[in-house]
Design a protein around this nucleic acid. Structure first.
Lengths: 204, 204
DNA sequence: ACCTGAACACCGTTCAAGT
DNA sequence: ACCTGAACACCGTTCAAGT
């Protein structure tokens, strides 16, 4: 009768995230997770309702890094930019879990709390409620799209594979080594253009 | 010895897409697909290398709807907007397959061909090769993000579930019934702001 | 040439039983 | 209270065998 139980929810979450980072989303199984924790698969179900639930908890912990504090100063542009950057950084730290976010990222309590802050700040800045909703949605589009469809994953490491079939493509950009930088710069370009374009609307 | 084989690759693809549309991505199994085609699972492997391969083929067929013809007139803004809209429409027609695109959407031949067209048109319009790459990437971010994180999926149908915890959120916007319209309008807002912001850069 | 039965090595999840 | 063995109902994939 061990006083210190081997398992608890936070240790399970940490181990699950570690496996996802190392082996990918498809590489996570309840049996492998249990083995990594020195236990049998059935034991996990005393602490976690379901694999899907566990994934939502892991994703939720990651999204805790999203910073909506930039809206506090009253500058909605600065708020949007810092929020978007922290959001992207949080996802970029654990890229393998991003596809999972496709299945309803906003359901969770903490996400709605952050969304509420963004929404309130935008309305305070003079946008209508509907515009605020659409701007917040657009920001999520940008961040999730960037995290998901990064060049780093999208292209083959084998440069020669593309041959001469795409005369306009700069083949150097397809190399994974430069892709990470290109991902970052593309995100910044998109974010800047988006905020600039919004500013035009606001006559600001 | 039937002269007309029961199975062929295109019939398999169509059935697979039908199941995905109806039952979701997780609802597609090789056994169910085979049953739907009046055949056993093993038979599929005479026509399709792997389930993953099949999904790539299905996704490829959907992406065939992306229209890069709007660049032909020499107006890059018009090209970007029509490309983005047709891209989004293609994905919105089969939302359940979008999460699959997370795993390397640009690998495929036809996608690279379209990317090459976009890239060439942007360079012809005066953007540098690097800018062209980043603009194309940004457009994909926007479209994929919009297809993925749509309000239609993100929120609960049960309005009361949110209670009064989010004073700033307009709860009407969380209803699925208005979510589709909001998704559309948010995408148009993001696209317009993005292109406007780009135009600012181009001093156009 | 095309399809099938049976098998292999996996899954998530449950539950009575052990300590 | 917490963990386990064994089982259930599934997976994707292979391959010798049938027609």
């Amino acid at each position: 009768m061990p006083r210190n139980p081997v398992l608890d929810a936070s240790r399970i979450r940490a181990a699950a995230l570690h496996i996802i980072d190392r082996d990918g989303l498809a590489g996570l199984s309840m049996r492998k997770l249990a083995a990594e924790l020195g236990v049998r698969a059935a034991s996990l179900y005393g602490h976690v309702a379901t694999k899907d639930d566990l994934l939502h908890e892991v994703a939720g912990a990651i999204l805790e890094e999203v910073d909506v504090g930039g809206f506090a100063g009253g500058d909605w542009r600065h708020g949007l930019v810092t929020c978007a950057r922290s959001y992207r950084a949080a996802l970029a730290a654990h890229p393998n879990i991003v596809p999972f976010l496709a299945y309803g990222p906003a359901h969770r309590e903490a996400s709605l709390r952050r969304l509420d802050v963004v929404h309130g700040a935008l309305v305070a800045a003079g946008w209508t409620r509907r515009e605020a909703t659409m701007i917040a949605a657009s920001l999520v589009y940008l961040v999730l799209g960037a995290a998901l469809s990064s060049f780093s994953r999208g292209f083959s490491a084998d440069r020669a594979r593309y041959g001469d079939r795409y005369p306009n493509l700069d083949k150097a950009h397809l190399l994974p080594s430069v892709a990470a930088e290109l991902d970052h710069d593309s995100f910044e370009l998109a974010l800047d253009a988006f905020v600039t374009g919004l500013g035009q609307r606001a006559r600001g």
